[in-house]
Design a protein around this nucleic acid. Structure first.
Lengths: 347, 347
DNA sequence: GGAACAAATGTAAGCGCTTACATTTTTTTA
DNA sequence: TAAAAAAATGTAAGCGCTTACATTTGTTCC
């Protein structure tokens, strides 16, 4: 017990609706109306109330409002990570569009862990999110049951599966990757490898891998002999994985990467190993994040309209929440960005 | 009016505390205790209650809890943008540490707009944030008054000013930049330029600029003739600004950039202009984001321990919230990362 | 001018939880 | 074994808002 730290105790108390009502000489109902549907109250009293609000520095208590009104004007989103530019960008657009419609966004990130994601979803639900944005399909079935019971509209983004009837906005990771792989194989590559994220709990990663395998099978390759390394979405992981995969026999002439972050790592490793890209080995990514075109050599990758996806997701979700209707899923188009890291194999 | 969309109406109703209590044959108080301080209730009834919770799929209503308990175990943070890796990274660490202590993070981003930031702060306060993390010092004074009235402990991050008595964790943007500038000037540069973010509402940007000017003055340069271009923190802005600044007479032999994003843009522009770096012009950044070392040539910049800052910020804020005490501000050390974009001026 | 209606405001009942205080049950102590 | 103390549980009063319904005030129209 030495010297006390300075106390942070308040000078004043926090004003409530009732305080405002008292000061303005009206009932709490009127104050509430002034705040929520101003046109229901006559101008004269409205200005008086607003003045009281201002004088007191009143700000409505969100929890109390949520409890009474049973909605929050809040949308929740659970993303795998904030550290990948694609989510950061998509979510930013999502938030901007939500804001335009008077909704607030609550973001949580799950670090690609299924259990954590589930917990975050429950937290967001408990916090009264009116709707939810989730990434991909892979998820415990009873979670969707939980959300249905609470009638929380949920939209899936960054993925699209024709067969599913869950509302979604995204693209087919499999088709996109297969298209790219076909193009690569047409260039004559026969020894291929893939660096993927963990496919266990990540359907996007799984689909991208499946896309490569699909194209490989079409091209008559023995898919069982294709080296696949699963790792985390970090540059350094890409470095390690690339080293490993290049030690394979036969050595790949092209390495597909599950996303651009991994591809950047692979590129870095190639340089360190003294390999020239694409002469010695071609490298491809996925996402088309900003560094992709800045890399040296620039990265061949698949462009995904992240911003558009975020923006439109917001619109869809607001519709679901307000109209209580299930929208048509939308499939977005991706396209291949052919850049310098892809070339024909050495002969 | 064509076909109705499928309705999303719930099959069931959402269980409440009272439902659980009824099913377990106890009072609501006991259920509440089971959830919040389990050791206050005897094992036998606790298991019974927990079973009821499980059977019903009960999840506590956050708003109701917040309203009754007057705290939320929630920390709010307002950052300028999610799209800059430094905040994404720092905030991720912040969140992880908060999570470890049972706190939830609410993030909002202000797009570097003062008015928006203020609004976000009020929103977070209304949502019952127990504490707040804010970036930098620049802020309407009455906002701090507002937070004090509501006794919401607030920590400032990414900046540190000795003179201020607001709790903060960060570093001196001015000193860090001045150190770098001194080093640059020692190499013989006399024609310098700076690409900065808008200094109007951004004290970090202002301090970084001040750092360059300080060192320049020490070196006897005429600071009024140093070209400074203010722009937004985007790669493309860096490109434009670099072109502009290189048209200055006399043409700079070194361009200081307010952060790495701008520097990457400058580097790109230099390449496009056929200038070689650092032979024709040196370029420096600030932050040491991941691409800085990946760029070609690698970027000389100032390394900031973003992760550490985020982690420690969480600890400090939790202390402030729980112990209701004002902590000592902490100044973190930055250090210069000398890489290839910096060289002596051409003679 | 007053009936008929519309607009503005007030009254008060919750929303689902926590917690101070009261009561009951169990354990300890002499 | 009974009184005292401690532990477990129950009772009920809010927390700060919204909103259905009731009441008052204002407007319209013949």
């Amino acid at each position: 017990m030495t010297k006390e730290p300075p106390s942070l105790t308040p000078d004043t108390t926090v004003p409530t609706l009732a305080d405002v009502a008292r000061r303005a000489g009206v009932s709490t109902a009127t104050v509430s109306r002034c705040l929520n549907s101003p046109d229901q109250v006559i101008e004269r009293t409205r200005t008086r109330v607003m003045q009281a609000v201002k004088d007191l520095g009143y700000a409505p208590n969100f929890s109390a409002r949520a409890l009474a009104a049973k909605h929050t004007n809040t949308i929740g989103a659970v993303i795998p990570t904030m550290e990948n530019a694609i989510f950061a960008r998509g979510i930013q657009a999502f938030q901007e569009e939500l804001g335009r419609h008077g909704y607030t966004l609550l973001v949580a990130s799950s670090s690609y862990q299924e259990a954590l994601e589930e917990e975050q979803i429950r937290t967001l639900a408990a916090r009264g999110a009116d709707g939810l944005l989730l990434i991909g399909y892979h998820r415990n079935a009873k979670l969707h049951e939980f959300l249905r019971q609470r009638s929380i509209p949920t939209l899936i983004a960054w993925a699209f599966e024709k067969e599913s009837d869950l509302p979604a906005i995204g693209f087919s990771n499999k088709h996109a990757m297969a298209d790219l792989a076909r193009l690569v194989l047409e260039k004559g590559h026969r020894k291929i490898g893939m660096i993927s994220a963990d496919t266990g709990a990540n359907d996007r990663a799984r689909d991208r891998l499946a896309g490569v395998m699909l194209a490989a099978r079409e091209a008559g390759l023995d898919v069982d002999r294709i080296p696949v390394i699963e790792t985390t979405y970090e540059i350094e992981s890409g470095v390690q994985a690339f080293r490993q995969i290049m030690a394979w026999t036969p050595r790949p002439t092209v390495v597909f990467c599950g996303n651009d972050v991994l591809a950047i790592g692979a590129l870095k490793a190639a340089k360190e190993m003294g390999l020239s890209v694409p002469e010695d080995v071609s490298i491809t990514g996925f996402d088309d994040i900003e560094i992709a075109s800045l890399a040296e050599p620039a990265l061949t990758t698949i462009h995904v309209p992240h911003r558009e996806m975020g923006r439109r997701a917001a619109g869809m979700l607001i519709d679901m929440v307000t109209k209580n209707a299930s929208p048509n899923s939308v499939e977005l188009q991706t396209d291949i960005r052919l850049r310098r890291t892809l070339g024909p194999p050495k002969t």
